[in-house]
Design a protein around this nucleic acid. Structure first.
Lengths: 345, 345
DNA sequence: TTGAAAGCGCTAACAG
DNA sequence: CTGTTAGCGCTTTCAA
């Protein structure tokens, strides 16, 4: 093992004290211009690289924020990460990204691990099955700021950047009703997750407002992954006397899986026989034919806003633990072919 | 600021020495069973959490490996990451994922930053424009194992897990020729990147083998993002007397962008007027109509293999720096509608 | 089985 | 402007 170069090596070579080296390296005003140059030159020469473990230990800061999300591959999250990175990089913070794969046990491990590494703040979008914020207590107790984004908890007093899920679902459903849909089913996400509860409520409110029939059997809960979606659409199609003419899906991933299934395995046409709407505006939603009508969640903005809020809290701990801030990001209905039924005049 | 609980706090409470606490916490055989239990209980009670900064500094290990990729949102990479995580998690290592956005300067910064954090090993798929491995010298000099995956360099002696790009491109091109394509253009990636050079060569070899005309003007280089792809297809379509009947694209992202463009802005039909093939088997490629014929890269396997190799090297530095290992992962042609021209008999 | 003591590499108060 | 000194929290010889 090659020995790593330390400030002591530089100090010895330059006949200076290690503290001077340390100052020079962090560009302190308390060291001469000439000395700085000598130090920098020598550091480069020897291939010196500051040991952040030691530095962090000493300063009790890591300049690192942890980001925990269900899946990096989901468009919503990868775009949110881009927003987070943009903000965070400009302030010289680093980001550690971890995915929970929507598994609560994994999430707990990650959250614990990040704490042990003494991150300066945490940005988290919990799993569908995360029941409460207990695993985040450690952060609260040790005054490490946490900001939730997208998914969140009812209580726990965490600051968050969320999306107007209910309005989004309402607008989507209303739009489908306006396009002559009469019998709308809903593919819901895990009901323990508030965002999916909100989406469900938005759907339901739209039905009620338009005096359309609502039945519990119109709503199917699942994890909204492709496998779930296909299983559910099969179940729905089995009851031939009770077919919907529209599907309000809790996300695009499930909606896309269903569109593909219908196209390949049935004679049902979208949107003529069955209209379909989704959530998140995945890239594939603009590629499929017909295009999938969906709710854009402005995930870049969500990520950006959450990161700004977190950095704010990191720099003002008072604020972080005396207030609880909630920012709601606006929804946007993206209308494509999958909902274009003929309209009665 | 709440003071963090340290082993000294535990030691004081239990009237033991900090070293005993440390041993108990890491389940050393050199401490009594009863003592261990007391320590663990107290640790839990006080909400103790080991400070990895300090631990890492002392042991000179971080149990962390860095992963640097162009984009987390690309299916190829997110799947490779899943492969990496699977291997690495089982050995209690952590993963730090960073994206370079295919920008060399960003990559350099990330690589430097990861080194400063003293990761135990690095997995990297460099940017298209990364000219050489100079920025990885730091790792070599300090005997920190590096494994390249997917993208790589000609020399530098790095171990790597790569894909049989040439064969993949050859097979794809041959398949298109078998489907009656006569004039095949190629959307190439940055030529400085070997994988795209290989894909180009595979394309070219297939033309030659079939005695089809090859011209430099048939090949267009770019970053293969959607914007580039659309710009290029527009340019190609302008020369109405020199239109291709097939496009061999360097990746799916560009192929998909072109299919969408053709569908929305021209009368050209895929595959009748122009056949299209891609690389990577993005999820959208199976959703678009017609489906996009592509080369599956088994990215999960690539990630898994690269991670296994890296862990191997971490545990046997000799091997890591005395040998250079190259594993090639097999390609698989996925045939879909986008290349199904009528075949002459 | 436990304790004492040193030190990983760095920073920051204090002193000059 | 530079040096001295102490210590962040942990692990690990060495000693008992």
């Amino acid at each position: 093992m090659t020995k790593n170069i330390t400030i002591y090596d530089l100090a010895k070579e330059l006949k200076l004290d290690s503290s001077t080296i340390s100052r020079a390296l962090s560009d302190s005003p308390r060291v001469g211009k000439k000395t700085k140059e000598r130090v920098l030159k020598k550091a480069h020469e020897l291939g010196y690289s500051r040991n952040m473990m030691a530095s962090n230990l000493r300063t009790n800061k890591t300049m690192t924020i942890g980001v925990v999300i269900p899946y990096i591959s989901r468009h919503f999250f990868s775009e949110a990460i881009d927003g987070i990175e943009q903000v965070v990089a400009s302030k010289n913070y680093r980001v550690i990204i971890s995915q929970s794969h929507d598994d609560f046990e994994t999430e707990k491990k990650i959250v614990k691990g990040l704490f042990m590494n003494r991150i300066d703040g945490l940005l988290i979008s919990p799993t569908m099955s995360t029941p409460n914020a207990e695993h985040l207590n450690l952060y609260h107790e040790n005054k490490i700021p946490v900001v939730l984004f997208d998914r969140y908890f009812e209580n726990g007093g965490f600051s968050k950047v969320i999306f107007e899920d209910r309005k989004g679902a309402f607008d989507l459903t209303q739009h489908m009703i306006d396009n002559n849909c009469k019998k709308l089913f809903h593919l819901a996400g895990g009901i323990s997750s508030l965002i999916y509860k909100e989406r469900f409520l938005g759907y339901k409110e739209a039905l009620e407002k338009n005096n359309l029939e609502f039945k519990d059997s119109y709503v199917r809960s699942s994890n909204l992954n492709p496998e779930d979606a296909i299983r559910i659409i099969k179940e729905i199609l089995e009851k031939k006397d009770d077919l919907p003419d529209a599907l309000v899906c809790g996300n695009d991933v499930s909606a896309l899986a269903i569109m593909k299934y219908l196209d390949e395995n049935t004679d049902l046409k979208v949107p003529e026989d069955i209209a379909i709407g989704g959530f998140s505006n995945e890239p594939a939603s603009d590629i499929i034919k017909p295009g999938l009508t969906t709710i854009d969640q402005h995930s870049f903005i969500i990520g950006k806003t959450a990161a700004e809020m977190l950095l704010n809290f990191i720099n003002d701990k008072e604020k972080a633990f005396q207030t609880s801030n909630t920012v709601v990001v606006r929804s946007e209905l993206i209308i494509r072919g999958s909902t274009k039924k003929k309209i009665n005049h």
